[in-house]
Design a protein around this nucleic acid. Structure first.
Lengths: 218, 218
DNA sequence: CCAAAGTTTGACCGATCGATCAAGTTTATT
DNA sequence: AATAAACTTGATCGATCGGTCAAACTTTGG
């Protein structure tokens, strides 16, 4: 049964103090790394700063993550799983209006709760995704193909105006993630130091309205 | 009249071979710098690689641009002017539907013709705009305020559904620039090596349709 | 034709980077 | 208690970075 199998990062359920300490340190490392990678990009991020923010000496950081590349891959993988976890509402038997409403709300909520993750991913894409492996061509494309079939179905049954589902997703991704990736710009235009909950709410409401009406769902 | 005033980069109209050579070199430098900054970000970009792509030795690059910071500022300034130059169609006496159509088309055309510029700007925003000075708070905010008044006017005269113009701009910026900033992702999902003209056309058409209908303009 | 100014370039500098090492400490096992 | 394994850390390495220097070369103006 192998109950001693470590489940990765944080699920140190019933374990000795060593496992628990290790889980805590690895969590601190991943959190610090995400912040530094989001702020400075891969090249600009330094292992020294990540170690400092995680509260450990630099050689100790290398003990847990052999190379900067490996640390980045760990951070990235966590983000990709977060990314693919959304949009379970878009299914054939769902109501299109409700599904898109929920999707937009969920995506903007993701931007609010995980802005650093979004920025690391955006940074990776901007620079040509040199460290993303085959995620885009395999996992993401399959994800889009599956959801596109659902939307094509809605179109064929006259439930919404005809659209190219793929470009629709590009638009939804962009319109929602912009509130994480380009938050500085948005905050500056809105005259704030940082975005408030009301800003995200208004963004979600207006984006939903325009998109639903634009798709003939309202 | 001071006809000898150099107008900056390339307008070496009637000048000696030295001025013309200088203009050509500076153009090569800015072009190379834009490409390298877009690909690697500020920290990741190296003066050596910029010099190599511009076809000159590194000390010669420093002769034309004292520091990496100064070179980046020059590249950035050129991009910001390009950015603010769009959207002259959004004016009080214009037809809203035509104005938004033209704006979306112009923005996507900008993404197609200047993807590197868009990526440098996006990269700057993602990392908190540490080198953007007061552009966001001054120039951009004023730009948005001016255009927002126009849109507010259209709303008050019942020409379109009520919206918060600022969030509308966030959506339009995101939906159009995504075709430059995240072109790798889009190309991968569409199953292409790089985006084709038809992709941009379809993007512009569908984005325009959804937005116009969403704003009650169609 | 000559001196001054502008331009080019190989060699080099200190700083910082990712990564390693070796010696230490702490914890788990028997 | 003893041994092995896991973990910690100051010191240090070679590589690369942005930037400089001084000596050469080229154009310009008188």
């Amino acid at each position: 049964m192998d109950l001693s199998l470590e489940s990765g990062d944080e699920a140190a359920a019933s374990a000795g103090p060593r496992e628990r300490a290790r889980a805590k340190i690895e969590a601190a490392i991943l959190s610090a790394a995400e912040a530094v990678f989001a702020e400075h990009g891969f090249s600009g991020a330094s292992m020294s700063e990540i170690a400092r923010r995680a509260g450990i000496p630099k050689p100790n950081l290398h003990y847990y993550c052999k190379t900067k590349e490996e640390l980045y891959q760990r951070v990235l993988r966590r983000i990709l799983d977060l990314w693919l976890g959304t949009a379970d509402e878009i299914q054939a038997d769902a109501d299109p209006a409700a599904a898109f409403s929920h999707y937009i709300a969920a995506k903007i909520d993701l931007a609010r709760r995980h802005p650093l993750a979004s920025r690391v991913f955006a940074n990776e894409l901007i620079h040509g995704a040199p460290r993303l492996g085959d995620f885009l061509e395999n996992e993401l494309q399959a994800w889009v193909a599956k959801k596109s079939k659902v939307i094509d179905g809605w179109v064929k049954t006259g439930k919404m105006h005809p659209v190219d589902p793929r470009h629709l997703f590009f638009m939804l991704w962009a319109a929602t993630q912009t509130y994480a990736d380009f938050a500085v710009q948005i905050a500056a235009v809105l005259g704030r130091k940082s975005l408030k909950p009301a800003d995200y709410d208004r963004a979600a409401r207006q984006t939903t309205e325009i998109v639903l009406r634009g798709l003939g769902l309202q």
